[in-house]
Simulated assay, not measured.
Amino acid sequence: MMTPQAPARPDQRAYEEAIRAEPSVLVTQLRDLLGVRLVAVIANVRETRAVHEWAEGSREIRNPVVLPRLRLAYQVAAMIADAESPAIAQAWMQGLNPLLDDQSPALLLRADDSQETGQRILAAARTFAANG
């Protein structure tokens, strides 16, 4: 007799997708969820053309901090989009969040790549996804 497995955490699928995705696929999915301008803000690039070229695979992401930042942004956005909608995920990333000292998750992520900040953003996203 098989023992039923405990359900995976709600954000497990988003985490696995974020980690496994090739950079061009990741950027394409993130761009589809959040829009090209917000992805450019998170990546801290001045032009949306860079985001489009990353998605097409015609340009590499050269800055070593950008890809992990985009993976975390995708994890958070996908988790919220699954619980709510892509529009809510986009609004959540841009809004001033009381769990993040009234800072925008997107701007906070762009400004601080520390593990602690990533953990705070994930915790705020999990709370929002669970409670709506």
Rank of each mutant, 00 (worst) to 15 (best):
R71L: 01
V45N: 06
L72K: 01
S114D: 11
A55P: 02
P105I: 00
E53T: 06
R49W: 06
A124Y: 03
G57E: 09
G57N: 11
M79T: 15
V45I: 14
V25S: 11
R69W: 04
A87W: 04
E17N: 14
S104V: 07
Q119M: 09
R126M: 06
E47P: 06
S85A: 15
I88V: 15
V66T: 14
I42T: 01
L100H: 10
R59W: 06
L108Y: 00
R59V: 06
A81R: 00
R9Q: 14
L72M: 10
T28R: 15
V25D: 13
T28H: 10
E116N: 10
E116L: 09
A18D: 11
I121V: 15
I121P: 02
A106T: 01
M2Q: 13
V36S: 12
E53W: 10
P86F: 00
I19L: 15
N97G: 10
R13H: 11
Y74K: 03
E56K: 13
L107D: 03
L33S: 11
P68W: 08
D112Q: 02
N131C: 06
G118P: 03
P105C: 09
A77H: 04
G57Y: 05
I80G: 05
N44M: 09
E56Y: 05
L33V: 08
R20D: 15
L34K: 04
E84V: 01
A50I: 00
Q103M: 12
L100C: 10
L99Q: 14
Q90L: 11
R71Q: 03
G35R: 00
A77V: 05
A106K: 09
R31L: 03
L33H: 08
A55Q: 07
A89P: 03
V36R: 06
A106W: 00
T48L: 02
